[in-house]
Simulated scan of single mutants.
Amino acid sequence: MTVFLFELSFHLAAPVWLLMILAPNWAWTRRIAASPLTVVPILLVYLGLAASVVPELWTAVREPDLDTFRALVALADGAGAVWAQIIAWDLLIGQWMYLEARRLGLHPLLTGPLLVLTVLLSPVGLLLFLAVRATRPPTPAHHPAHPALR
């Protein structure tokens, strides 16, 4: 069951990522990306995995150190829970990046690769996006009511 839930956490996030990357101008993509509820199914998977390792999880967050964390992720359900949490938070980061890119009027050919990089290595993708964002202050043409952003 652990392997199934581990894999399920990514499969639940993948459709949202695919919409943001491959269909960025579709009206439903913006609506879906604007909702934090996209992560709820992934967080339910997290709870399912975390339920069996509550003592180890509590120890890891109460007394965070490398050995305690290593003991948690040495357990299959512990590693799965951490993975599901990472998938959920990465998706939220990606959704914010997508919405922010739309607000700034960034072209999907720039945003798409940054989102792919974020799926694979979220810290690197986010840092690169923040660097791009820093060079692109919003202008009146990038107002959310602008037709290109709908």
Rank of each mutant, 00 (worst) to 15 (best):
S35V: 10
R102Y: 01
L92Q: 06
E100S: 04
L47P: 04
T38H: 06
G94I: 02
A84Y: 02
H143K: 09
D65W: 11
L109C: 09
D67V: 15
A14M: 12
F6S: 05
A27W: 09
E100D: 12
R62M: 08
V61R: 11
L12F: 13
H11G: 07
V132C: 04
T135N: 05
L115Q: 00
H143F: 08
G112V: 04
T2G: 13
D90P: 02
V116Q: 01
V54G: 04
F69P: 01
L44W: 11
A23C: 13
L109D: 12
T135Q: 08
H107I: 04
H11R: 14
L104A: 07
P144I: 05
T2N: 14
R133W: 01
P123K: 02
A131G: 06
A141T: 12
A51R: 15
A148K: 10
G80D: 03
R133T: 01
A51F: 14
P113K: 04
A88I: 13
Q85M: 14
R31S: 13
W28E: 14
E100A: 02
A148E: 11
L128G: 00
P137K: 05
L130A: 04
S122E: 02
A76F: 06
D90F: 02
E56Q: 15
Y46I: 12
L92F: 02
L37I: 11
A50S: 11
I86L: 07
P140M: 08
V54E: 09
R136V: 11
L104P: 01
A131I: 04
W17P: 00
P140E: 12
P64T: 12
P137H: 07
T38P: 03
S52V: 07
R31A: 12
F6I: 15
P138E: 15
E100I: 00
L22G: 11
V73T: 15
L91W: 01
L12A: 14
I21T: 09
P144N: 09
V16A: 09
R133F: 00
L47N: 12
A14Y: 12
I86R: 06
I21V: 15
V39S: 10
M1W: 12
R31Q: 11
L75N: 07
V3P: 01
V16I: 13
W58I: 06
W58C: 07
I87F: 01
L75D: 10
W83Q: 07
P64R: 06
A50N: 10
A14L: 13
P123N: 03
G78Y: 04
P15W: 06
F10V: 12
V73Y: 07
A84V: 06
V53D: 08
R70I: 14
L130W: 03
A101M: 04
V16W: 05
L19Y: 10
A84P: 01
W17R: 03
L66D: 10
W26G: 01
L18A: 15
